[in-house]
Structure formats: C-alpha cells, structure tokens
Amino acid sequence: MAAEVIQGLYSYFTFRIGNELLAVNIGHITKILEMTEITKVPNSPRYFKGIINLFGEVLPVFDGRLKLGFPEAERTRNTCILIFVFELDGQPASSGLVVDSVGKVVIFDAEQLRPVQQNGKGFNSEYIDGIASINNESVIILNLEKVFAEDEISLKNAVD
C-alpha cells in the first residue's frame, strides 16, 4: 500500500498519449491498470478524472491528455491507467494517469538523454526531464514531480 519511489534506476517505461511517445523512470511506476470505473468528483478541474478504489486505497486519477495539453479523445481498448508514486513535500504520494496505450521498458544511459529545446513541443517544457530516442523516434522523459506538483493548488483554483 505504501508505495515508495525507487531511486537510481536507468530504466524507463514508455507510453503513448496522442502521437507522442513518453516515458517515465520506472522507479515511479507501481501498477498498470486496465481502464476501470472512475468515480467523478464534482466541482473539480476537467483534467482530474476522479477517484478509484485500488485495493482499498482511494487514489486520484488524472487525464493524461488534458493534463498535458492534448485534445480529449474517446477511450479505446488500449486505454490504461498508470499508477505512479512520486515525492510530494518529501512524502510519497500515489496517483493515476490515464494514457492511450502502454509500451515497454527501455534503458537509457545518462548520455542518451538530451536536454529539452525550449517551446519545442505543444506542452509545458518544465514537465520534461530530457529527450531520448528509440528507433529514430523521440521519447519525452516526463518529470512527474513537476507534472503533479501544482495540483494541490490547481484543484483549488481551477474550479469554475
């Protein structure tokens, strides 16, 4: 239940949202779930899909598309929920992210990661730790702490 971030790994887990190939350090991933029923929480921002019951624990789930600035889309049979753990104020916190499909585990050495070009992509470059490539396709390495860091506040403010 009390998942923790495993530090110091060079393996990354890839997934897709829209046409983008994204990855996060595998130390942050605790589970991959099939799309399940998500309980909506009224009066919350649109990218916050709601809460799920994960073996007796209540977890928030975010919509990866909306959170990262992609247009909303219908769910497909490949749609999954990735369960992440990340550090929030020094304590591990878990949450889910709905992604279009999941890929595989790859290993990148530090020299394979390139720094981000400013404004190169359609979403906030602050969320990105670096860029690598697999078979000539770019992989965006996400920094989860930063993606979720503002959510505590934004949930408060984004209510219309």
Partner: peptide, 25 residues
C-alpha cells in the same frame, strides 16, 4: 472513511471517500 490523499487536499466539499460493497466509491 478513507482519506482522499494529499493531492486532493484542495477539494473543498469532500473530506473523504468510502468504499461501498460493490467496490464503488
């Protein structure tokens, strides 16, 4: 009552969730 977790502290209407017999929240 299950806490909603720190990510959802900002929620201003709900203070927790409970798991129903059906597994729904």
């Amino acid at each position: 009552i299950k806490p909603l977790g720190r990510l959802m502290k900002g929620l201003d209407l709900f203070s927790g969730a409970s798991i129903l017999g059906t597994g729904q929240l």
